[in-house]
Design a binder for these strands. Sequence first.
DNA 1: CGTACACTATTTTTT
DNA 2: ATAGTGTACG
Length: 671
Amino acid sequence: MTHESKILSGLNDAQKEAVSHGPGPLLVLAGPGSGKTRVLTHRVAWLVTSGLARPEEILAVTFTNKAAVEMKQRIQNLLGGTGGVRAQTFHSACLYVLRRDSAKIGIDPKFTVVDEEARRELLVKVAKEFRLDPPDAAAAGKAISFAKNCLVGPDEFPKWAAEKTGEGSLLSQKMAEVVSGCGDAVPEVYAAYQEMLKKVNGLDFDDLLFEAVRLFRERPDVARKWAEIWKWVLVDEYQDTNRAQYEWLQLLVKKRRNVTAVGDPDQSIYGWRAADVENILRFKEHFPEAKVVALEKNYRSVPAVTSLADRLIQNNTRREKKTLIPVRPDGGEAQCLSFTNERAEAEFLAEKISALRGGQGLSWSDFAVLYRVNALSRTYEEALAKRGVPYVVVGSVGFWGRREIKDVLAHLRVVVNPRDVVSLRRVCLLQPGVGEATAAQVAALVLAGRPAAEVLSDVAGKPGIGKKARSSLIRLAKTLEVLETGIREKKPAAELCMYAAESTGYMAKLAKDRSEEGQERVANVGALVSAAAEIDASGGVAELLERAALASGDSDDGGGKDAVRLMTLHKAKGLEFHTVFLVAAEEGYLPHYQSSYGPALEEERRLCFVGATRAKDCLFVTWCRERTNWGRTAWNRPSRFLKEMGFEVNSYLETRRLSGTRWTDRIAAEL
DNA sequence: CGTACACTATTTTTT
DNA sequence: ATAGTGTACG
């Protein structure tokens, strides 16, 4: 067998067709559990082994860091090394381009990537000048983010917002919500916020896409250069692309047209942050010569699960007809259960997990509890803990988002981008004796164009500065100077991290806290040094900061821990579990009350679809008549999606399975 | 400037 | 219920 045919063996006909498609646009419509990632990775391997592409000519784009890592690993397994194939997120691909060419559109390539936390900080500061309070600032921030994702600048904003309203799309629905939340101050705040970003030489996440598009538009020669580098582009989760991502891709592939888009319109769940399902629905219009392959066979779930998911999604109007064809034989179960309150629901689930694990020889990590909103996790956590069931809540701040990690890295940021006063402020506030007032003084002087170390020494000498503050400012100035030389001489990032943490007294401060939390912080800084050492093997400080910025929002997924996973429906996308508990299937939660009409409702339905199709063997959809949220107890109606899935829901006592092979009535027993 | 305490506003999803 | 903000005092 040739290497090439080895890559095709074991694939079904549709998969083979997609994998071995030659040049030209290809759209793969891949239902849940149909081997989407498999097709993507095998296609990359096939392109290489067939000789059509060299590895370094291939760019595979994903939405999450996790998906990018997985993709890389699987390509590596197939090819025995990635050999230069780039698999990365949209944001990191754009960042890669901008670091090299941003000067061509007037952006200093040493710019800082402003993460969510820093962004909020800047927005609040800017909004204050317009007499907006923090909630209004947040609303304005949403509108700004939305606009950037739609490639709309501050000047075009008013006209665009007016046009958008009443358009009937999900995009316009979300936009209307956002704009109504903060009134007509948005354009001014937007402009001022951009001004501020420019001052500190920072780009936020949305800017990475926005500016990458601007670069390709304003400098066709640059676009051409990158199109020659990445001759083959593959996109995962295409249904989640927004306007900016779509445009960037167009500019990249318009000449060679070697674009592979893989996705499932029924799993588009990010409309609220400007993803536009139309991108995938109109692929054929954008690329008339495109080949379209549908992967409808579902290898993941038992028929009981696929059939109810299929029934549910048929209720969406704006979709292309497509079915889920189960490959697996009958078995497993899909049930709907109701409870008087969330306590009973949580107890049931904890008990059920223990029983199933023992009975079927499963691991804790074979179970997942999925809910619509994070706030719901608490009850389930308590019940699991009470029974001694190990669990992880996927969604808590991950490593790169931890305060201590960001604190240490802020020192390096200040040196790499001398105008980064956001990081400088952070670093100053860490010093004993230094507060808001002093930090602001320092920031103002640095923005006026003076080097940070010099400013710190100067401010330290000013009257009115306390003794404690004086000595710590001087110490900080020295640290920054040393880091500066260290970076110039390309010292290892690990060494510099260690130095930053130690010489500023930060480590000592952390170590003083003897609590478990405090000790964990110390350990995390140690882990940062190790991570830096790993990165030093292939890069340096720049790479470390890059990785930290882009991963700062990543949530802790529990690693390989054998524990039940608790997470939101959004976070469950792309995952699968033996048994899934889809909890709080109640009107108000699923669909969420803020999205219970119009196009947004359809997205809620897709969300429910995504949740249900995570289950391989068992699916339990549960709802409670009564739920206590923050102090208040409310009465709930069962989710309309239950009926749509085929469950008969007459009253809370009689929730039963309508059709299917097994008819179990455990409801009475549970109540 | 830093801490302690009280009050209030908050809750959808996140690269 | 809780986290985050604001105020008063050392």
